[in-house]
Amino acid sequence: MPEQLLFAMEVTLNGLMAGVLYSLVALGFVLIYKASGIFNYAQGVMALFAALTLVGLMDGQVPFAHLINATFGTDVHHFGWHIPALPAILLTAGVMVVFAIIVERLILRHLVNQEPIILFMATIGLAYFLEGFGDVMWGSDIKKLDVGLPQGISETIDTVTYNWFGYGFFIDRLDIAATLVAAILVVTLTLFSQYSKQGRALRAVADDHQAALSVGISLRFIWVLVWSIAGIVALVAGVMWGAKSGVQFSLSLIALKALPVLMLGGFTSIPGAIVGGLIIGVGEKLFEFAVGPMIGGATENWFAYVLALVFLVFRPQGLFGERIIERV
C-alpha cells in the first residue's frame, strides 16, 4: 500500500477519535435544546466544572479553601483522604444532578414562556457564574486528572498494523478508551429515551409541550432530568478532555468546537450530533494532513467553522434536520 494512503488512514482514525469528544459535547447541547428550546451556552463550563469537582473530590481538596482561609485566618487545604476514581465519578454525577435542580429552581422556573434569546442570555450568565464559582470552590490552578484510563501509544495496534502494512499506526489508548466510553454512553442514552418511561416523556416534551402536559408530564421534572443528563454528559466529556490535556479553563472552550458540529448535525438531532462530531474530527485532521503543509498549517483552528459555513449554505437544516417549508 502506498505510504500516503497509510498516513491518511492513520490520520482518519485519529480524527474519528477526536470527533467522538466533539460529539459528546454537542450531544449535551442537543439534549437540552430538544427538550426546552434553550441553547445552553454553559455546556462547556459545565464540563470544566464537573472535571474540577471530580479532581477536587479525588484529591480530598477542601472546597472553598481559599475563601475559608481568608475569612477565618485558617490554613486548610486538604481533608487528607483520597477517593478512588469510580466513587468520585458517581459523587460528581450526583453534584451535577444537584446543579440541575438548582438551575431549574433558580432560573428555568422563572423564565417559562420567555423568548429563546432571553433564555440564551440566562445561560450566558450561568456560564460566567459557574466559571467563577468553580474557581472559588476548587482554585484556578491547572490540575492533573488521572482516573486510571490507559494512556500512551497502543502497542497492539502498532504491532498489528506494522505486520499488515509494514507501517505501525500511532493510536493513543486514551482515545480508544474515550471512544468506547462515548459509545456506551450513547447506546445507554438511546435505550433510555426509547424504552423507559422517563425517556418517552422526554421525547414527548421535546416534541410538543402542550400535548406533553395533557398526558400528565411535569415539565419541571423533565427539565431537571435533561439538565442532569447534560451534566453527566459534560462530566464524561470533562473527564476525557481533562485526562488528555489537564483540567484548566481552556477545557470550557471545547464548547466552541461543538458549534460547527451542531451546524452540521442540526440542533435537534442526536444522530446528527454524533455523525457531525465525527465528520468534523476526521475533516479537520485530514485537511491539516493534506492541505495544511501547503498553506502554512494550523488549519485545525478554523477548518471546522468553514466546513460548517459551507454546509449551512447547502443544507441549513443540518444533516438530519427536517427541511422547514414555511406555510403560506
Binding site: 421525547r203 414527548a204 421535546a206 416534541d207 410538543d208 400535548a211 406533553a212 395533557s214
Partner: peptide, 12 residues
C-alpha cells in the same frame, strides 16, 4: 383531553 387545534407528537 384533546385540543381544538390538535396537539400530537408530530415526530412520533
Amino acid at each position: 383531553r384533546t385540543f381544538q387545534n390538535i396537539a400530537l407528537f408530530e415526530g412520533m
